[in-house]
Design a protein around this nucleic acid. Structure first.
Length: 115
DNA sequence: AACGTGACTGCCC
DNA sequence: CGGGCAGCCACGT
């Protein structure tokens, strides 16, 4: 629905489209929901969406760091989940965005709102 | 209604 | 190269 019932719903929709073994950044999600620059708001949504069955573990900051790992049921849940999906990690404990960065635009090419 | 906070990002010093 | 400030959006008190 292009009417965006809630900012929450939009973020959930975009994050829910992140393919397996891929990750994205708050900034990209923010832009995808039409609110470029409001990356922090995206984080706020994810905070409340962790228990919503949303793969929020696939959302990291622009450095690929698991900034929100501390908000998960367990501090290792995020990293463990990503590793389980085959997401490569760097020496700094950051995911290799160069290898698994996913952009919302990439999936919305010709598929925006509901047909 | 206003202030403070937050899983961010970018620019300036 | 490291640290700080401001912009941004939504929610809680």
């Amino acid at each position: 629905m292009p009417d965006a019932p809630d900012f929450f719903a939009r973020v959930v929709d975009v994050v829910g489209r992140i393919p397996y073994g891929r990750v994205t950044t708050y900034g990209h999600v923010a832009r995808a929901v039409g609110s470029a620059g409001s990356a922090r708001t995206v984080g706020w949504v994810l905070h409340g969406a962790v228990a919503s069955g949303l793969p929020c573990h696939r959302v990291v900051n622009r450095f690929g760091a698991l900034s929100g790992a501390r908000h998960f049921p367990t501090p290792t849940f995020m990293e463990d989940a990503l590793r389980s999906e085959g997401v490569p990690f760097g020496e700094d404990g950051c995911v290799d965005l160069s290898a698994c960065l996913w952009m919302p635009d990439e999936a919305e090419q010709g598929n925006e709102e509901q047909m």
